[in-house]
Design a protein around this nucleic acid. Structure first.
Lengths: 199, 199
DNA sequence: TCTCAACTTGAGGAGGGCCTCAACTTATGC
DNA sequence: GCATAAGTTGAGGCCCTCCTCAAGTTGAGA
């Protein structure tokens, strides 16, 4: 790849990162190109589809989440580990409307590795007796979707209240809060389908 | 108003009702007109703005919600009343993607009357000791936003799982589940603003 | 039956986003 | 320096949605 091409790629990523962050994933591509100071044709040269641009922008996030997961598993208190992990993910969502969108659309826990780590976090918290026994990994989508919605609604007007929403949600996940649930959980494939047909 | 005009109005409302219900509030107006078997010009004659059409379609809902609220207040058990009310609202959301959108955008509890009723439902549940003391009316937006997001994501793929999300959320609202909350609640005006800048 | 205000119609302008491609420019290896 | 492959550019075609308005149609009162 030629030097100027690489440079333009950087400019585009920088512009996309910033526009995604405060307007979400649906910013017009032309605006990204304009912000980067580059023509729309160049954008299409570097990133033939929007998905490729999005992936490039958020590439680092999967490592961040994996790291978050590992740090959580390293904590002594399994419940605190779970809380730290979920809080960490939500903080990423709250810091970036684009990532917030992405989390809703499901690319969040896309890798098999991330999936396995999350499963361990949950099982460990259940074994410790702190997390209620009747929830599954798929139920965590509810907390992601829920907090994402609150983040989106309050992003400009009350940034940070999502922590209150999350706290209430977590209180509902404690074993001591458990009351019988009315419906079976989503199957993994339902959860996957639900994430992929949002856009 | 002439008879044919009234008739067309009915056709338009019927079409809009059905399209809103399963595609949300953003259906193209031209499609609504086409479905109604009427020209786009006629749609604009009857409903100069999209908002007027939406309002006409969902006019009945405010009475429905008020009735729901009154029935809940009439229940002996204040907690059961709260649960019945919230469940009722969520059922409306789950039955109609359009109303789901509307609820998120905040027209749900728009009337001062509805607002007052909801306040009473909550205060009564708190006085009974079942609802945690540290939540406010504004916090209820979290449950609406959260369930709305789950409804939207699972509408086609797992209709009904939202009840599981709701059950978990309600478990977090019980007094017995309460742990200190990290952030003050939204002020009423923040809540209003959050609802009005979503679209 | 006649009249006319009320109503309907749909072509078309405006605006916005997506994407392509032929003509131009430039980095790079020799 | 030169040749050339790699890269850039932006006008323009496409499609979609919104909204308007001049011309045609029709219900209803006299």
């Amino acid at each position: 790849m030629r030097k100027d091409a690489l440079h333009n790629r950087e400019l585009l990523l920088r512009a996309a990162r910033s526009l995604f962050a405060d307007r979400g994933l649906d910013v017009p591509l032309e605006e990204i190109a304009r912000t980067a100071g580059v023509s729309i044709g160049t954008l299409y040269n570097r990133f033939p589809t929007r998905a490729e641009l999005v992936e490039a922008v958020f590439e680092d996030r999967v490592a961040t989440v994996a790291e978050l997961a590992e740090r959580s598993l390293a904590m002594d208190d399994a419940w605190k580990g779970l809380v730290a992990f979920i809080t960490g993910v939500c903080e990423l969502q709250a810091a970036d409307l684009g990532y917030n969108d992405l989390a809703v659309r499901g690319a969040a826990a896309d890798t098999a590795a991330g999936y396995a780590l999350m499963r361990r976090i949950i099982e460990r918290a259940q074994e410790s007796g702190a997390l209620r026994d009747d929830v599954t990994l798929e139920d965590m989508a509810f907390v992601i979707w829920g907090v994402a919605a609150t983040v989106r609604a309050t992003f400009r007007v009350a940034p940070g209240v999502w922590r209150r929403h999350l706290a209430l949600t977590l209180d509902g996940l404690r074993a001591t809060a458990a009351h019988p649930l009315p419906t079976p959980p989503m199957t993994p494939s339902q959860a996957r389908a639900a994430m992929n047909d949002c856009p």
